[in-house]
């Protein structure tokens, strides 16, 4: 029975670095868009007044959420750095180094996550 593989390049073990970068950029992009809508709704509690805003914001500044914020900073950093990589390629710059540039984006964003946890350590590990 012959069947057509719709995306033959997206298969575990057969992925090129560029494909991994492309998928991660898309996945983080969708995640960040969903987060953005949530973020606007949470900050939008200001329309219900000072007390409602501070109550909502107090809930999302618990140690667990501060830790998740550090993770969010890492996701934003990856999407941003990999985005700069894409812009560079669109301008014809750095395509030769596309693989090391992807790994640099990924490693830097993990370091930013770790740095975020370190900076907020006294708010997370209370």
């Amino acid at each position: 029975m012959a069947y057509r593989i719709r995306y033959p390049h997206i298969r575990p073990g057969a992925m090129e670095t560029g494909t991994i970068a492309w998928i991660l950029h898309r996945v983080t992009g969708v995640f960040l868009t969903l987060y953005l809508i949530t973020h606007i709704i949470v900050i939008g509690q200001s329309v219900r007044g000072k007390e409602a805003f501070d109550a909502a914001l107090n809930f999302v500044q618990s140690p667990l959420f501060v830790f998740l914020d550090a993770g969010l900073a890492g996701v934003v950093a990856f999407h941003g750095l990999n985005g700069l990589r894409i812009i560079a390629f669109d301008m014809g710059v750095g395509i030769r180094w596309q693989k090391p540039l992807f790994w640099a984006s990924l490693i830097l964003s993990v370091l930013i996550f770790v740095a975020g946890v370190w900076v907020a350590r006294n708010l997370i590990f209370v």
Binding site: F53, D54, L57, N58, V119, N122
Partner: peptide
């Protein structure tokens, strides 16, 4: 963050 750790403010983001 320093002010929150020192207890000056309850939270980092306040109205």
């Amino acid at each position: 963050i320093d002010e929150v750790e020192a207890g000056v403010y309850e939270d980092l983001v306040l109205f």
